[in-house]
Computed example of a mutant assay.
Amino acid sequence: MNNNQKVLMKIRGYFDAFIQAERYISSVILIIVTLITFVQVVMRFVFDAPFSWSEEVTLMFLVWFGYLCMAIDIYTDDHAALYFLYNRMSPVLRKGADLFRHGLLVWFFVEMIKYGWMLTKLNLPKPQPATRFSQGWLYAPLVVGGVLMLIYSLVNFISTILKPRSEYQRESDKPKTVEELTVERGGTV
């Protein structure tokens, strides 16, 4: 392992701690959404007195939850892939496909940040009907999640550049476990 790879591993260690915090925040958001929704159903069907604000707050939390989870998925590089095709590629093609994929994601997240910022600024002065919270809070996750996903995509892109071709060769020569074969064939573990 060369010095660049050691530095990258140290940086990834810091990101791992940050990802744990993101997972914790996402879990708390999901619990809050579940509680609000449960209480809202009880208030509506049992007491016939629903809250006027619950849908707006739930929607806002779900949007934040979604973008935080997408950022985690980008960092761990666990999103959907065509493993049946990817695993049949030569090491050179695999590295090229990984560079292309991460480069495309970097471009996409730059665009997402740019247009997300425009939407957020446009909707900041507009209040939501029930809570009177700014509608900008519904669009801010585009920017926050976009920045996180951009950073994680850049880390993955740099990791791919620094990953030697011999490691790709070692991965393709390694015997596959039953779980890996199941995922490659489109199943889940």
Rank of each mutant, 00 (worst) to 15 (best):
V144Y: 14
P127F: 00
M43I: 01
R132C: 07
L35I: 12
T76Y: 15
L119W: 03
G187K: 03
M89D: 04
L105P: 01
I32L: 14
A130H: 13
E56W: 05
L162Y: 00
W137E: 11
I36N: 02
K95V: 08
E171I: 10
R88T: 02
R23P: 06
F51V: 09
F65E: 12
K114H: 06
V147D: 02
S134A: 12
R88Q: 07
V42F: 12
M149V: 14
Y139M: 15
E179S: 04
M1K: 06
P175R: 11
V92M: 02
T177I: 14
S54A: 15
L150E: 00
C69W: 14
L93E: 05
E22M: 06
P175S: 14
F38R: 04
S134Q: 12
L148R: 13
D78I: 09
M43R: 09
F15T: 01
V189Y: 01
E56Y: 06
R12H: 04
L138E: 03
K114W: 11
W64D: 09
F51W: 13
Q135P: 05
A21R: 02
A49D: 09
F47K: 01
T188P: 03
I158E: 03
Y83V: 07
T182L: 15
T76F: 15
T188I: 08
L124P: 02
K163V: 03
L35P: 07
V106G: 09
G116Q: 09
V178F: 12
V39T: 10
L148D: 03
R185C: 09
Y168E: 04
T160E: 00
L59H: 10
G187I: 08
L162E: 03
A17D: 13
W107P: 01
R88C: 04
N156S: 01
P175N: 10
Y24R: 10
L138S: 06
V178G: 07
L181P: 11
F84C: 08
Y152N: 03
Y152G: 03
V28K: 07
R132S: 13
T182G: 07
K163P: 06
N2C: 07
M9N: 13
W117V: 02
Y14M: 01
K163H: 10
K176L: 15
F38G: 10
M89Y: 12
S26V: 05
L59Y: 09
P125I: 14
D73Q: 15
T76V: 15
S134R: 02
F45P: 08
I74L: 11
L150D: 00
M118V: 13
R185I: 09
L82M: 09
Q20D: 12
